[in-house]
């Protein structure tokens, strides 16, 4: 493991994981244990403000987030892990902006001082749980933990927005691939999913049904087109919107989507041989059991690679220069 010498991180679950996304919390903790790294829940953390606090008043919003960073630093932790993409981006952005903009840094610290706290930008490294699994634990260690490969389960890895944007540097902003590789390591079949980093609608479910339901429909449509058995997500907001609103989408558009939405940590737990209950399978509204029943003991037969048509023009290599 390349992370902290002791492989331990401050853990910021965020409000969603306490109730609505408890399945994500439970499964995150068990896979951490299975992979041998520690998630130490940050004492007395507060809400990150979601996107709502930033809409109302930006400075208190940054101060709200900074309290969590200050608490992390005061506990002596160097890295904080958030499984929720919205929490992750708020923590990441606050740390980055405090470093980039002196004026903001000064005001946020003045506010923190009112609570006898202080924070120096850069002191805490903000990480998403997927980043930790992929880069600190690594694919090899994950592969070593796989006991029941998810052969024949077709998954659409869904990253959503905030794990890659604004530029957090951990994966491509437009076409991330880390979770794709992770799912392959777990034995699952990864389907092409061009909308993998598009928006789930976010808080638009509360503001405009027209906008939100259409955004959700596009994602479900795209995953269905590519014959995915399940969508795998890294964010409780994405999970909630795609799962809980699926019924409304079907009613509005006359569609018949029945796409289970699972957290990547739940899928990992299953591949590690854990009981579905141990990773809180069953908390989802669209039942995941029919999809999971497709898993076979034998790997799928790889279709023979089609020989390139002689008349076809060569494809550009996917290596990027510079």
């Amino acid at each position: 493991m390349t992370a902290n010498a002791n492989g331990s991180y401050a853990y910021y679950p965020g409000c969603s994981l306490t109730k609505n996304a408890a399945a994500y919390d439970v499964s995150s903790r068990v896979i951490a244990r299975a992979l041998g790294f520690e998630l130490n829940e940050l004492t007395d953390w507060n809400c990150c403000g979601a996107s709502e606090y930033f809409s109302l008043n930006q400075l208190p919003a940054y101060a709200l987030v900074a309290r969590n960073l200050a608490l992390t630093a005061s506990e002596g932790a160097k890295q904080v892990v958030a499984p929720c993409s919205l929490c992750y981006v708020n923590l990441y952005k606050t740390d980055k902006y405090m470093g980039d903009h002196a004026d903001l840094n000064e005001k946020v610290n003045a506010a923190l001082a009112a609570g006898k706290l202080a924070y120096r930008a850069g002191d805490v490294k903000v990480r998403h749980l997927l980043d930790v699994v992929v880069n600190d634990v690594g694919f090899d260690n994950v592969a070593a933990a796989v006991k029941k490969p998810l052969y024949n389960l077709r998954v659409a890895p869904y990253y959503g927005c905030l794990i890659v944007r604004p530029r957090t540097g951990f994966d491509d902003v437009e076409y991330p691939t880390t979770m794709d590789h992770l799912m392959e390591v777990l034995g699952a079949t990864v389907v092409d999913f061009p909308l993998k980093a598009e928006c789930c609608g976010g808080h638009m479910t509360q503001i405009s049904d027209d906008v939100a339901l259409e955004l959700i429909r596009r994602l479900l449509h795209n995953a269905t087109e590519y014959e995915a058995d399940a969508i795998v997500t890294v964010c409780p907001m994405c999970q909630l919107n795609l799962d809980a609103y699926q019924d409304q989408v079907n009613r509005r558009f006359g569609t018949r989507f029945k796409m289970p939405i699972l957290y990547f940590t739940q899928v990992m737990g299953l591949a590690f041989g854990m009981e579905p209950k141990a990773v809180a399978i069953g908390k989802e509204i669209v039942d995941a059991r029919p999809a999971l029943a497709k898993v076979t003991a034998e790997p799928p037969v790889q279709p023979k690679k089609k020989r390139r048509d002689k008349s076809a023009l060569p494809m550009p290599s996917t290596e990027r220069e510079g």
């Binding site: 008043n57 709200l64 309290r67 003045a110 006898k116 706290l117």
Partner: peptide, 13 residues
């Protein structure tokens, strides 16, 4: 503590 921080931030903003 949180409220003190937020109140100060509101004042500054």
């Amino acid at each position: 503590q949180l409220q003190a921080i937020l109140n100060k931030a509101k004042q500054l903003s």
